[in-house]
Computed example of a mutant assay.
Amino acid sequence: MDWTGFGLNAAVTLGVTWVLLTLTWAVAVRIGRHSIVDVVWGSGFVVVAAVSLLLARAQDAGTAGRGWLVLALTAAWGIRLAVHIARRSIGAGEDPRYAEIQDRATGSPAAHMYRRVYLTQAAALWFVSLPVQVAMYQDGALWSGASLVVTILGVLAWGTGLFFEAVGDWQLERFKADPANRGKVNDRGLWRYTRHPNYFGDACVWWGLFLLTAGHWSGLVFVLSPVVMTWTLARGTGAPLTEKRMASSRQGYAEYVARTSGFLPRPPKKT
């Protein structure tokens, strides 16, 4: 493990995420719509992964196979998420979450949003992406010995996560497209087993990327990255805010909550 190279990489990617989110803020202020930051969220991880791989290859550090694999998995997840959110937001107004944050501003609304949303997301993006960054600088075999086991487990976890996230989003999109479902709760498909298949899938993706680095102790150092991501999705700004909004706008949501798991998929309870 090239710790010197990784330290340089971490400093560079910290600057990259700050510049990326600052530019996003400037565009959002100009167009008057801060929800575009959600599109940048997924693609931002792809940028960090690509920059990290380029720096590692320039320093001849790490195993190229692991680096390209992690970049490919990160890109497949991040680009799909960015495209999905961009398509979903076409013709929609400002996200109620960001409108509420902006309404609480005591001084400049733009400065308030920059501190509360963009700097926070830049820090979160950089911290959660640390396993992706460290993967680029790890030496050793990828498909043999103990590394083979964690590599397979990592790819399986990532694949499970992408399945839940992509299929869950597709099922919800189809449900909303039917006018007969307006104001109703989607309890079909994956949504029958968990109220948040997309958030569960997101967590699995990041545990999978972490596992790709867990064959060496240098990867285990950054276990807090997927922990923070999972907590944010399940207990932070993910599921709780979504459920607060759904409870006041969807018929039968309380009954849905009573019978359906909040995060981990499991058969619905009998009520």
Score class of each variant (00 low, 15 high):
3 W>F: 04
7 G>R: 03
8 L>F: 07
9 N>R: 01
10 A>L: 01
11 A>F: 01
15 G>H: 05
16 V>L: 06
16 V>E: 11
17 T>G: 02
20 L>P: 02
24 T>I: 03
27 V>P: 12
32 G>M: 15
40 V>R: 11
42 G>T: 14
43 S>D: 14
44 G>H: 11
45 F>E: 13
45 F>T: 14
46 V>W: 13
48 V>S: 13
49 A>Q: 13
50 A>L: 15
54 L>Q: 15
59 Q>S: 15
60 D>G: 15
62 G>Y: 06
63 T>H: 14
64 A>I: 10
68 W>T: 06
68 W>G: 12
69 L>P: 04
69 L>V: 05
70 V>I: 13
74 T>N: 06
78 G>A: 12
78 G>M: 09
80 R>L: 09
81 L>A: 05
84 H>D: 11
84 H>N: 14
88 R>M: 05
91 G>S: 01
92 A>H: 14
92 A>R: 15
94 E>N: 03
95 D>Y: 01
97 R>K: 02
97 R>P: 01
101 I>A: 02
102 Q>E: 06
102 Q>M: 07
102 Q>T: 02
106 T>G: 02
111 A>V: 00
112 H>F: 02
113 M>F: 04
115 R>Y: 00
118 Y>I: 00
118 Y>T: 01
121 Q>L: 09
122 A>V: 00
123 A>G: 09
125 L>M: 12
125 L>R: 03
125 L>S: 12
133 Q>P: 09
133 Q>E: 13
134 V>M: 12
137 Y>N: 12
138 Q>G: 09
139 D>M: 13
141 A>V: 04
141 A>L: 05
142 L>H: 15
143 W>K: 06
145 G>P: 12
148 L>S: 04
152 I>T: 08
154 G>T: 08
155 V>P: 10
155 V>M: 11
156 L>S: 05
156 L>V: 10
158 W>V: 09
165 E>W: 08
169 D>C: 06
170 W>K: 14
172 L>H: 06
172 L>S: 03
172 L>G: 02
174 R>W: 03
174 R>G: 02
174 R>D: 06
175 F>W: 04
178 D>A: 08
178 D>E: 08
180 A>L: 11
182 R>D: 06
184 K>T: 11
185 V>F: 10
187 D>V: 08
191 W>M: 09
192 R>L: 05
192 R>P: 10
194 T>P: 10
195 R>L: 12
202 D>G: 13
202 D>R: 10
204 C>D: 13
205 V>L: 10
206 W>K: 09
207 W>S: 04
207 W>F: 05
208 G>Y: 03
209 L>D: 02
209 L>P: 07
209 L>C: 08
209 L>W: 08
211 L>F: 06
213 T>K: 08
216 H>S: 13
217 W>L: 02
217 W>C: 02
217 W>G: 01
218 S>T: 07
220 L>M: 04
223 V>P: 01
224 L>S: 01
224 L>M: 03
228 V>A: 11
229 M>I: 00
230 T>G: 00
232 T>M: 08
234 A>I: 01
234 A>W: 04
236 G>E: 02
237 T>F: 11
237 T>K: 07
239 A>R: 05
244 K>D: 10
257 V>A: 07
261 S>H: 12
264 L>W: 08
264 L>M: 00
266 R>E: 03
